[in-house]
Simulated assay, not measured.
Amino acid sequence: MRNFLLGVLSGVLATALAATALVLSVRGEASPTSAPTPMASPVPSGRPTDFAADDTWLGVVDLNSSEIVTSGGGFIDVSAKGRGIRVSDRGIHAQHLDLEATLPWAVAATQVGEGVELYAAGSGRAGISRTIEVLGQRVPVKATGTVRADNGELVIEPESVDLDGPDWLDTVASAAARALVTIRQPVQGVPDGLRLTGVSVIDTGFRATLSGDGVTITN
């Protein structure tokens, strides 16, 4: 996630700076007789008071991307909006950042654990499939549960649990199985100040919303 956000904002900053350079170039080529009367430029609201000569500050940045791939996985259908983006030799920081993106099922399953399968189970619920070990036996288990964001974490709480084994095993292992298919997953690699605020289930994965103030994207 950290590399993802860095890539997102770095790309936006590069585009913004290139556009600024183009505007300045066009102005430099204009005839002196056609130059407009100089006017005082207002200081943008929210601009830092300790603005240094080598700092770059952007008031509002919007970005939409169909896909972002990082070393930790990938996101699709990404929408990001930042306010008060400041770039300096101390890193990239945002006064406020909102992010919405889809975490595909396969990527989320890899983050949860080896051998886990996640999928849409209908009615806004997520399905979980994995193999557990009970009384020396490896038993496949499937569960369907509700999804929510809780204290910055992705939570999947099972409503139904199905063990693919004999009836006596279902009785003995039901509590253990329920614990192993209850998912409480921290959002890994999120920059300081940004946290998961909402999550829902869609056909392609988890639709996640993250938000925060004073976000340090990279140092």
Rank of each mutant, 00 (worst) to 15 (best):
K81H: 13
V215G: 01
S66R: 13
S200H: 03
D50W: 03
A109E: 09
P140W: 10
W168F: 07
G136T: 11
R47K: 12
V190I: 08
G165V: 14
V116T: 12
P42K: 09
A40N: 08
D167N: 07
G46E: 10
G165L: 09
V112G: 01
E100V: 10
F206E: 02
V60Q: 12
S66Q: 13
A14G: 10
P140Y: 07
G82S: 11
A176P: 01
S129Y: 08
T204I: 05
S88L: 12
L63A: 15
P44H: 07
Q185W: 04
E133M: 06
G165I: 09
V107E: 15
G193S: 12
V141F: 02
A208L: 15
F75P: 00
V155D: 01
V201Y: 00
T218P: 03
G145E: 00
G214T: 10
L196W: 04
S160E: 15
P158K: 00
G72M: 09
P166F: 05
G193V: 13
L196F: 06
A18S: 13
G46R: 09
T110L: 08
A143P: 00
L17K: 10
R148A: 11
T49Q: 10
T70L: 04
I183S: 01
R184W: 01
Q111I: 12
V147C: 02
V8C: 13
S129W: 05
P166Y: 03
